[in-house]
Amino acid sequence: MKLAAKLEDLTKHYVLKSETVRALRGVSFDIPEGDYVAIMGPSGSGKSTLLNLLGCLDRPTSGAMYLGDANVATMNDNQLSYTRATRIGFVFQSYNLIQQLTVVENIEVPLYYQGRLNKRDRARCLELAEMVGLQDRLSHRPAQLSGGQQQRVAIARSLVNDPYFILADEPTGNLDTATADEILRLFENLNQLGKTIIMVTHEDEVSRHAKRIIRLRDGLIQTDERKENRTVLN
């Protein structure tokens, strides 16, 4: 099976004045294409650190992480940026849309940083907006949208560059239960369409929907299990 990402003995140390914090102490796992992974663990266990590495926002202290054939650990800053623009889709807890831009323009941002924006791309942005149900809100500003709608825009944005995987950091953390369910249903649909999803959450309610749960503890993988009887939203 083709892999969306491959992590080999990843470590991340933060060197402070008085001590060295070993946030990740050797993490290895594969993420096959089409997987739906929830990363869980208590506070301070290294979830955010792992997510930053997966998102190519940071380089590991040691180990390797492959996206396709490319080892992220050896990339320079511009290569990391390019990898983020072309290979990764981000969904944040607080949506993180750009206030000055309209819905479509927000969806276009990753393409803009890839240096391309032709007619086909624009058409694709419109398709994505329609897919997340915002075809009537194309020229609205984020401030004019509800939280759920903003998160839908963010999801459309995360799909626009056709990424290896979508990284979602507590994507439902700011939403009420009903809206959270809608967003999770959207993820479910995307996963069924073959999209790979990696999600950090501390809620069992949310992780229930994933196919696989990786639990971290003190910078190490405690458990990595595939679920037989997961809750599927339709």
């Binding site: 998102g55 926002l57 800053d77 511009n78 940026s81 390019y82 983020r84 623009a85 072309t86 981000f90 944040f92 993180n96 849309l97 750009i98 206030q99 941002v109 990753p110 940083y113 890839q114 944005r157 560059n161």
Partner: peptide, 16 residues
């Protein structure tokens, strides 16, 4: 700052 972070995450280089 937040917008800058978002743009960087979405692929903006320093020069962008």
């Amino acid at each position: 700052t937040r917008e800058i972070g978002v743009r960087r995450a979405l692929g903006a280089r320093r020069s962008d």
